[in-house]
Design a protein around this nucleic acid. Structure first.
Length: 218
DNA sequence: GCGACAG
DNA sequence: ATCTTGTCGC
């Protein structure tokens, strides 16, 4: 089936109504395992990596990868249609081994033209709490609130801009979590000196090595 | 038409 | 995202 922008837009608009901006339920301080997912490429060959990171022991519990040829190009606002197929496969392999309490996705959640970025997309598919972690803003306004830079979409705070020295990241609600919880978890797993929180940084690092390994098969 | 534009 | 070695800056 061919990828059509108009169909993708309708799907996103419809699915965004299923997103929950509810509290994680458990106290942020009791979260132990956070997942992280990212994709790296070589031309049209992509490798997705899903990692399970233990906050308390500051170590990777497990990880899984999945590589395949991608046919849909990167189009701002439709990243999920390109990357989700790979992430879903890698995530299923990971979940077959370990349990994760919340998932970080490289990209946005509700800071999206139709409030359905890849973090919301993946979170909804797995019915799991998810958070979008991005290095650049795609959509939304930055507003100062209580001395913090909030990301606002349709008069709703969907996330926050987090800063550590020269690094800036955009953290937004994916699914089943609040903006404050998302920001707290991202900050809690973000080590000084790195551009991204550990779960995402590790997924990025592993997928980059993986794409080089599988590059020999091309 | 012009500018913006996750990875 | 990716192409890419050494090099300038915090």
């Amino acid at each position: 089936m061919k990828f059509l922008i108009e169909n993708a837009k309708r799907a996103q608009t419809f699915l965004s109504s299923r997103i929950c901006i509810t509290s994680l339920g458990t106290d942020i301080n009791n979260v132990n395992v956070v997942g992280g997912a990212d994709v790296s490429y070589k031309k049209d060959w992509g490798c997705a990596t899903a990692v399970a990171y233990n906050i308390k022991s500051d170590s990777i519990l497990s990880y899984a990868t999945y590589c395949d040829k991608v046919s849909i190009p990167y189009i701002p606002g439709f990243l999920a249609f390109r990357e989700a197929p790979l992430i879903i496969k890698a995530l299923n392999k990971l979940l077959n081994k370990v349990h994760i309490e919340v998932l970080f996705i490289n990209g946005h959640g509700l800071a999206h033209p139709r409030k359905f970025g890849i973090a919301s997309h993946i979170g909804l598919i797995f019915n799991m709490p998810s958070i979008g972690i991005a290095k650049n803003l795609l959509y939304g306004d930055i507003v100062l609130r209580d001395n913090r830079e909030a990301i606002v979409v349709e008069n709703t705070v969907v996330g926050y801009v987090l800063v550590i020295n020269s690094h800036r990241i955009y953290v937004t609600i994916g699914h089943r979590i609040t903006a404050d919880e998302a920001a707290s978890l991202a900050m809690r797993t973000w080590k000084k000196g790195y551009a991204l929180p550990e779960p995402i940084r590790l997924a990025d690092e592993i997928s980059r090595k993986e794409v080089k390994k599988s590059a020999a098969n091309l």
